[in-house]
């Protein structure tokens, strides 16, 4: 059997420091790790492997991502492959999934594809499902445990609130494993040293038969709608400029001002003007008149 495992290299959350003023991440202090869920997937693959089986580890990333492939080699992966387009700075889940699926198609389709169910970085959890879509395979996400029975996998999925669901899926399939599913083994010294010296094969777009245009998906066009929300309750606040006893009175009246008249003064014309201005202010009459 041939098992492929998709790995991703991401910043260690403990080393990510965000500037509170600018919101910028200090890249110079960041260290990178293998995504814990991917590590669990790799460990499960190694546990499943019979002597005649093969485990291939793949990643999408720049040259620095070689380190996680070396780690995979050290713990026992048979082959590794890195896919990358020089000059690219990041990938969206759809691009990552397309690159991985194409790489698998062009090299050799595995019998089973394992990956972490979501990354620690963005955690969209889209990649497993998208790879499955590109390969036209079934996908099972949030797997906490699974066993292989012939060409069928019995799995246990994590649901909300601690519930679990059992199920079966026929291979080939994409299995997305939770971070807690297994702890990655510790590499022996000779393997570690051999992995350190190993050459990491890289494939770029042309080797995959892709053109950069293939990666330029149109931006998703969804209609933006605002969710309904409750109108905030208006809380009565007394006028700050008033003396304390009047503010207390206002609060005690719960914002309901007592009806009170107002007497205008001055000559009849001035009084009339004031009354008209008063009514105009409140929209009862047109000021133009």
């Amino acid at each position: 059997m041939h098992i492929a495992v998709c790995l991703s290299r991401l910043p260690d959350p403990n080393t990510v420091e965000v500037d509170p003023l600018t919101g910028a991440v200090d890249a110079s202090r960041m260290l990178y790790i293998l995504n814990p869920a991917d590590a669990a997937a790799l460990e499960r693959a190694l546990q499943l492997r019979a002597p005649e089986d093969r485990v291939t580890a793949l990643t999408v990333g720049p040259a620095e991502a070689d380190s996680i492939l070396r780690d995979a080699l050290a713990v026992g992966a048979d082959d590794v492959l890195r896919v990358w387009e020089e000059g690219r700075t990041s990938t969206r889940p759809a691009v990552t999934a397309l690159l991985l699926a194409t790489a698998l198609r062009t090299t050799e389709l595995p019998d089973m594809l394992l990956c972490g169910t979501r990354s620690l970085a963005t955690g969209s959890g889209k990649v497993p499902a998208l790879i499955a879509e590109y390969l036209d395979w079934p996908v099972v996400t949030d797997i906490v445990d699974f066993t292989l029975q012939g060409s069928m996998v019995r799995f246990l999925r994590r649901l909300a609130k601690g519930a679990r669901s059992e199920g079966e899926v026929m291979l080939p399939a994409v299995l997305a494993v939770e971070a807690g599913a297994a702890a990655l083994r510790y590499a022996g010294l000779p393997d570690l040293m051999k992995a350190k010296r190993a050459a990491i094969p890289v494939q770029d777009l042309s080797e995959l038969g892709l053109s950069p245009v293939d990666l330029n998906f149109p931006a998703p066009t969804a209609q933006a709608t605002m969710p309904p929300y409750r109108r905030p309750r208006e809380i009565f606040v007394p006028e700050a400029s008033l003396p304390p006893h009047e503010r207390v009175l206002q609060v005690m009246s719960a914002g309901i001002a007592q009806k009170s008249g107002r007497i205008v003064s001055g000559s009849p014309e001035q009084a009339a003007d004031q009354i008209i201005a008063f009514l105009a202010d409140r929209g009862f009459v047109d000021r133009a008149g």
């Binding site: 022996g188 010294l189 000779p190 393997d191």
Partner: peptide, 9 residues
């Protein structure tokens, strides 16, 4: 002796 499997160097 390195603290790894077959850790003799």
């Amino acid at each position: 002796q390195v603290r790894r499997d077959m850790g003799e160097l």
